[in-house]
């Protein structure tokens, strides 16, 4: 019961952050880069989240700024998840020296936190979005590789896989239907957690002026500008952080809920309720 509340709260938190960004694709309350007459306006009916140093509407900037955050996170987790799962699955299925080599590579990747990898690529490619997206994708690879490898190693010797093979199922069918399907739960959890981590990393990097470049706003860079004007008004430093934290909190809660709901041991104890 309690866990399902967690799922509900998680979805709600994520939607609070995501809906403004989606709405921002078709409608904005103000031009996000247009200076307004009222600097540092506190939240009001005219400016729901107030205005910044130049009188620009904070809500409009958050609606635009989230695009890159979500897009980069989705790209990084999709690509990193795919490469990682293939790498780990291959290692676990084949075994031997190939497994050893693949997992050492995963270990080495694990030594590069997202921020470090992005700084490295930023120095080579310039401070654009390409370096940040690639770095975050690479960052995701070892986590998925470890899950996939562990799954393949433990599942490939199980009776139901042997039975499928005896029944004449080909390698691909076994991998897709019998092994990957059984890995769905840990992989889904890793996807949600990875998305949250990628959102945090993207914001950190845009705070460091990597990633999205001006004049486009980004959540991290908005916070950097707000830091400089904190003495004059704390409001611009509040909302981008709240929205970012809500998105990450939502994703983490959803991840926890998936873990609980898809774990067979848990299902036996509690009857599932579909929400």
């Amino acid at each position: 019961m309690k866990r399902h509340i967690g799922l509900g709260v998680g979805v709600l938190c994520l939607l609070v952050a995501l809906i403004p960004v989606l709405v921002g694709l078709v409608w904005l309350p103000y031009d996000p880069n247009l200076p307004g007459p009222q600097r540092f306006a506190p939240p009001s009916l005219h400016h729901l989240m107030g205005t910044d140093w130049f009188g620009r509407d904070t809500l409009a900037r958050i609606m635009i700024g989230g695009r890159a955050s979500f897009a980069v996170a989705l790209f990084a987790v999709s690509l990193g998840g795919l490469v990682g799962t293939l790498l780990g699955g291959f290692a676990g299925y084949v075994g031997g020296i190939a497994e050893e080599a693949a997992m050492r590579l995963a270990d080495a990747l694990l030594a590069f936190p997202a921020v470090l990898a992005a700084l490295l690529l930023g120095a080579v490619w310039g401070p654009g979005l390409a370096g940040v997206a690639t770095a975050l994708a690479l960052f995701n690879v070892p986590f998925f590789a470890r899950i996939a490898r562990a799954g393949f190693v433990s599942l490939k010797t199980r009776e139901f896989v042997a039975a499928a093979r005896a029944a004449g199922a080909g390698t691909w069918r076994i991998v897709l239907r019998h092994i990957l399907l059984n890995l769905a739960s840990p992989l889904l959890v890793q996807i949600t957690v990875g998305l949250g981590a990628a959102l945090l990393a993207e914001a950190s990097l845009s705070y460091l002026r990597l990633g999205v470049q001006p004049p486009l706003p980004a959540w991290g860079r908005m916070l950097r500008e707000a830091q400089d004007s904190f003495v004059l008004s704390p409001w611009p430093a509040v909302f981008p952080g709240v929205v970012l934290a809500l998105a990450v909190l939502g994703l983490n809660l959803i991840g926890d809920a998936i873990r609980d709901l898809l774990d067979p041991a848990f299902r036996r104890i509690t009857r599932l309720r579909p929400w």
Partner: peptide, 13 residues
Amino acid sequence: ALPEFWLAILLVG
């Protein structure tokens, strides 16, 4: 779920 650098900005403030 809290970004460290955001906490840092708020704590400095």
